[in-house]
Write a protein that binds this DNA or RNA. Structure first.
Lengths: 148, 148
DNA sequence: TGGGACCATATGGGCGTCAATGGGAGAGGC
DNA sequence: GCCTCTCCCATTGACGCCCATATGGTCCCA
């Protein structure tokens, strides 16, 4: 196709079912399909209480970023702790659903609903209210969520 | 007509039908057609409770701004949250109508009617009353609507 | 100048398809 | 053996694509 913009955009909120699964929005799945992504790399955002999700290339990008700063700096140390110690691979089921594990719940505070937020080259999982607060704060030039 | 006016001007209010659709004013559609725009980038405005609508170039402009700073900086993260997480691509149906999704309703308060407002290089979707209030306030030099 | 054909716009609705969600049953690990 | 995860199927409600109607305006021609 043409005209199809293969970027993660917009936000949508879906319910978690009794088994702890949640449907990834179809528009996001379409991007994953187009990029041929099957293994999803998930890690904790550096700033917000959200889980970032993308293809394996997402991990590559973070590792390059770590390599680009002083390897002994607190910043590199902190990033490595999150990227390597806090990253995990996941995959979707046949219906395009994701298991919401404790890894995700504990970091984001997600319990019954997940807000999916597009970030161009990846997307994020948020607790709905936390997302709205962070977005409102961002509009005012603040961050609204403590650095984690 | 006189000349080719490829700008979005004036305002008009249309009803949302039972299926949640609304006709985009013909004059706006003409501008879109002239610019060859098929994919509409819709963004939750930074200041007003309104949705800004334009071509993909609207997104490009914001992304260039993001690209101008360190992509891993908190500042880039914050901007992406608004530009990517608060934006979405949509398209009109064969009759030139737009689906009024929860993405639009929740942010603007729109329920039964939409006021389309020309903004030269893009246009906006407003809840009719909110638009009139904001306009009246603007005449007095105020803003009239709290940043959302 | 008045009437009427014609057209564009806004709006209404049928219907097929797909997405989001719910739940059953089997495979595998502790 | 029990709990958990995965694969499969069912349901329902939303959305996209299509065609139909109304209303108001414009243009043409008598």
């Amino acid at each position: 196709m043409f005209g199809v913009v293969s970027r993660f955009l917009s936000n949508a909120t879906n319910r978690i079912d009794a088994k702890g699964r949640v449907s990834v929005p179809a528009s996001f799945r379409a991007v994953l399909l187009e990029c041929g992504v099957q293994e999803l790399y998930c890690l904790q955002d550096f700033i917000y209480p959200a889980i970032s999700v993308g293809g394996p290339d997402l991990l590559d990008r973070y590792e390059k970023q770590i390599a680009s700063v002083d390897p002994f700096s607190p910043e590199a140390n902190r990033m490595s702790l999150l990227v390597h110690g806090g990253g995990v691979f996941m995959r979707l089921d046949a219906e395009g659903r994701l298991m919401v594990t404790d890894f995700i719940r504990d970091f984001t505070g997600i319990s019954s609903e997940v807000t999916f937020v597009g970030r161009s080259d990846h997307f994020q999982l948020w607790r709905p209210q936390a997302f709205h607060e962070a977005q409102a704060a961002a509009r005012e030039g603040r961050f609204g969520s403590r650095p984690v």
